[in-house]
């Protein structure tokens, strides 16, 4: 059976509800059917709380539960989990000094046919403005499970962004780490790819002399590993959301050397195009062909073009 991050999230959350009586799942309809299909709503009627289509209240309720010592896992569509109740996240969780795990679905273009309303390429940038939050962008269901269990055990605040796009295999073995998938020659460009864009990036850079690094956690960024793996002055950041979202953190991590940083990602959030997720990857230049084109331009760019 096809395994998705969303399926895995539901299964793992059910296990966490079973193993820890202080864990609560707070839903706003989205995902309810998946919890119901697994018998979890019947099994945990008081700790799976579906507030209905009330996304501001969803975060507020999670805050109230956290104030009373519970560990909320809150899930929903990224635009309605992060963008609509952003002030609630800021004030009802962060400012109250309490923690929750937010897990989104939808990502940048998963629901491409729904148009702009269900697309949130800005979510990670928004969440990154809030202090104390870790931000994870898993590229595989195994990574989602690893990061969710890690954050639940850790008890801090975390935003986990799931997507229907996923890599062929899981790469992250240690939560928060940056790993090297391909190593180029000394002085060659370094590509840091985030989340589910690994396969496309590896395909795109086949035959090129580049290093390819992978991160499923962008906040906090694994700066020591990044410093260790970067072998030249050109650094290319490839992210499946708003272009440049992690540029500042990458630049800060590499402020011990001169670099040229190129950021690739979503640059046109207001596409006004429906179609499929594949269409959107292509339009944003985040399929293999688009990534190769971007990387090639960087490699060929003279210093003055930086």
């Amino acid at each position: 059976m096809f395994d998705s991050m969303r399926f895995r999230f539901t299964d793992v959350t059910g296990e966490l509800l079973a193993s820890d009586t202080r864990t609560v799942a707070v839903l706003a309809v989205i995902g309810r059917s998946m919890f119901a299909d697994r018998g979890l709503i019947q099994r945990f009627p008081d700790r799976i709380i579906d507030v209905g289509i009330r996304e501001q209240a969803q975060i507020g309720v999670a805050g109230g539960l956290a104030l009373q010592g519970f560990k909320p896992i809150v899930s929903g569509y990224a635009p309605f989990l992060v963008e609509r109740p952003y002030e609630q996240i800021k004030l009802d969780l962060t400012h109250q000094g309490v923690n929750a795990i937010l897990v989104s679905v939808g990502a940048s273009w998963d629901s491409s046919g729904s148009g702009r309303t269900h697309q949130a390429p800005e979510d990670v940038a928004l969440m990154a403005t809030l202090p104390g939050w870790s931000i994870h962008v898993p590229g595989h269901p195994d990574e989602l499970e690893l990061l969710l269990r890690h954050e639940h055990a850790h008890g801090a605040s975390a935003y986990i962004r799931t997507s229907i796009d996923q890599n062929r295999e899981s790469y992250t073995a240690e939560p928060g780490s940056i790993i090297a998938l391909r190593t180029g020659s000394e002085g060659s460009p370094t590509i840091l790819v985030v989340g589910p864009l690994v396969d496309a990036t590896l395909d795109a850079t086949s035959g090129l002399d580049v290093s390819v690094l992978y991160a499923s956690t962008v906040v906090p960024l694994d700066a020591p590993a990044l410093r260790n793996f970067v072998r030249g002055t050109d650094v290319i950041l490839i992210e499946p959301f708003l272009a440049g979202t992690s540029s500042g953190r990458v630049a800060d991590a590499l402020n011990d050397r001169p670099i040229r940083l190129f950021s690739h990602g979503v640059t046109e959030p207001e596409l006004r195009i429906y179609g499929t997720p594949r269409d959107h990857r292509e339009i944003h230049g985040l399929d293999a062909q688009g990534i190769r084109s971007f990387v090639t331009r960087v490699i060929q760019a003279p210093l003055s073009a930086a």
């Binding site: 309720v61 104030l67 009373q68």
Partner: peptide, 23 residues
């Protein structure tokens, strides 16, 4: 018991706390 000042937050927080009391 809560940090406040921005209007429209306390009631949802209190719903969550009341649910916690119930659990």
């Amino acid at each position: 018991d809560i940090s406040s000042g921005s209007l429209g937050h306390g009631l949802a927080l209190s719903v969550g706390a009341a649910l916690a009391m119930s659990i």
